[in-house]
Simulated assay, not measured.
Amino acid sequence: MKTDHIIAALAGTYSLINSTPWRNGTESPSPWGRNPVGLLTYTRYGYMSANMAATEENVRPLNIRWPPKDTDADEDWVLVGRHAMSYAGVFSINQSVPATKFGGQLVHGPMIAASVPAMVGSTSGRNYAVHEREDATYLLVSIPSDDPNFRSEIWWKRVVKG
């Protein structure tokens, strides 16, 4: 299948359902907690953005607002930064891995903007698997790792077809 057809099939906005890191075959705590929120968007023009955040009050203080005030505790903003991530840039299909509209590997990046400064300009692979069900389309994104004892799985539900 041509890469532009795959990109068109993936295009849309997805809502975060679950983020699960695994270490040595055991589920590890997610930096986004047990009830994360987020959106992942792929456009048919080859751009993407991802936003994820925890919702638990112990890691997501409700007493701070944007814009930050001088009276805000730095510790509160540290928690927000540690338990949220956003990045955006271009994306493409990794052509060295067999790909269809149902599975393959994406390349996120180079990143144009990111909440983590070191991510700007970076690229990273994401394996994807599309699961079409009666109720919705689900996207499983897993992050390849050089560490054979670590894997991360993120489930998304399509909310808008793009």
Rank of each mutant, 00 (worst) to 15 (best):
A84H: 11
G121A: 07
P110H: 07
K161M: 08
F91S: 06
Y138R: 05
S122H: 04
E75G: 00
I112F: 07
G46Y: 05
L39R: 13
D72K: 02
R126Q: 09
D4C: 09
P31Q: 13
L16T: 04
E132F: 09
A9R: 06
K157T: 08
L62G: 08
I143Y: 07
V78T: 05
S142N: 07
T100Q: 09
I154V: 08
A113D: 13
G121F: 09
M85K: 10
W156Y: 13
H83N: 10
P61I: 01
F150K: 10
L40M: 12
A54F: 01
V130I: 09
T71D: 14
P144R: 04
M85R: 13
G104V: 04
V59M: 04
Y138K: 00
L39G: 05
T20W: 01
G12L: 07
I154R: 02
L139M: 10
E27F: 03
S15T: 14
E56C: 04
R133G: 06
V59W: 00
P36D: 12
R65G: 03
A73R: 04
W66L: 13
P148R: 07
P21N: 09
E153Y: 06
R23Q: 11
L106Y: 08
F150N: 09
W156S: 01
N94Q: 08
N63E: 03
P61F: 00
E134Y: 07
Q105S: 13
V78Y: 00
N35P: 05
A113T: 12
D74E: 09
G104E: 06
V97L: 08
P29K: 09
T20Y: 01
L106Q: 05
F91M: 15
S96I: 08
A136C: 12
A84Y: 04
S115C: 11
P117N: 12
Y138W: 12
L39A: 14
D72Y: 02
A136S: 15
I112T: 09
R65K: 14
N63F: 03
G25S: 02
E153T: 04
E134A: 12
T26Y: 15
F102P: 00
N35I: 08
A88P: 01
I7D: 03
V116R: 13
A9N: 05
P98T: 15
S86P: 01
V160G: 00
N51C: 15
T13H: 01
V116D: 14
A129F: 11
V59R: 00
T55N: 14
V141Q: 04
A50M: 12
F102V: 00
V116T: 15
F150C: 05
Y14S: 02
R60I: 03
